[in-house]
Design a protein around this nucleic acid. Structure first.
Lengths: 151, 151
DNA sequence: ACGATTATGTTATATTGTTACAAATACACC
DNA sequence: GGTGTATTTGTAACAATATAACATAATCGT
């Protein structure tokens, strides 16, 4: 994400929190910012390292609390299969996304496929299951790496 | 899983490994057995505890190696969101499954929905992504717990 | 029987995440 | 503005999950 995008996203996050009556404190904003500036998912402890340039002696709870908040507000996502976190690409509307995770270059793409969402809904409805949090992470090879490997 | 089912599943696993020229050793079989007998997912360390009744001094690698093998052979699945493992319900054919995980009672149901598989395939194909391992875990409330809660 | 491969034993350590309690800050209300 | 309350942050210890490294043992093909 470039600088202009970051500024827009932070403004968006700010507005969202204001509207909801929750506080986007300095620490929370910093964590969000670090995630958005990174071009790859960051683990909690990578975030912890990077936070040293922002606060004096960050400890694990510092990060996990900020992450908990941001996850609740839908501003970041957790990638369960990587134990890592990414900034949400579309924080302005609630959504169930899917993640395409390239195990070659590490690139992660967030997509929102309505057809996937629909079929998941149908499958769970068929057995009376009420989904609160759908986790969809596809591990594989991105287009770029596939092409490169075939050369 | 009841005893008869377990015997069938172990025989099936045995045959599969034979066919593939890989070894289903005592330890591996024990881990598979423990997972299949459990009515809920087990963490690696729960397995480790239970293995004490089978081998003298099991250490983490004992379990993780067995799990690695069983995962490779498709005999067990890992639930990324729970850090836990379950015996595969249909080991005899390769498949991409989805898991419905009840966060109330802990029940996990493995389903194989072709419509979900298809839409995931379409979504990834659209961006040139080649999926090797699809992870689909729906966290929510199972039918039984939903009904109970409404009473 | 021999050498090579595969599996296991053992110790230590890395990584990820939580608990518990104290101090500080922000907020609502008077 | 002061006061009590709720929220956020600081800090230390620890729990849970997973891997590394290297030694020993079992198995397999020849």
């Amino acid at each position: 994400m470039n600088n202009k995008e970051l500024i827009h996203l932070l403004a968006c996050a700010e507005a969202l929190c204001q509207k909801r009556g929750v506080r986007l404190t300095d620490q929370r904003r910093s964590v969000l910012q670090l995630l958005c500036l990174s071009n790859k998912p960051l683990s909690a402890y990578e975030l912890l390292d990077q936070m040293r340039s922002v606060v004096k002696n960050p400890a694990p709870p510092t990060i996990y609390r900020a992450l908990d908040f941001l996850l609740e507000q839908g501003l970041v996502h957790k990638l369960e299969s990587l134990h890592a976190y990414v900034g949400c690409a579309h924080p302005d509307h609630p959504h169930a996304s899917q993640f395409l995770i390239c195990d070659n270059c590490g690139e992660v793409t967030e997509v929102e496929d309505t057809s996937v969402a629909k079929s998941l809904k149908a499958a769970s409805k068929a057995v009376g299951f009420r989904t609160k949090r759908p986790i969809v992470e596809l591990l594989g090879t991105c287009a770029h790496c596939s092409a490169k490997h075939e050369k």
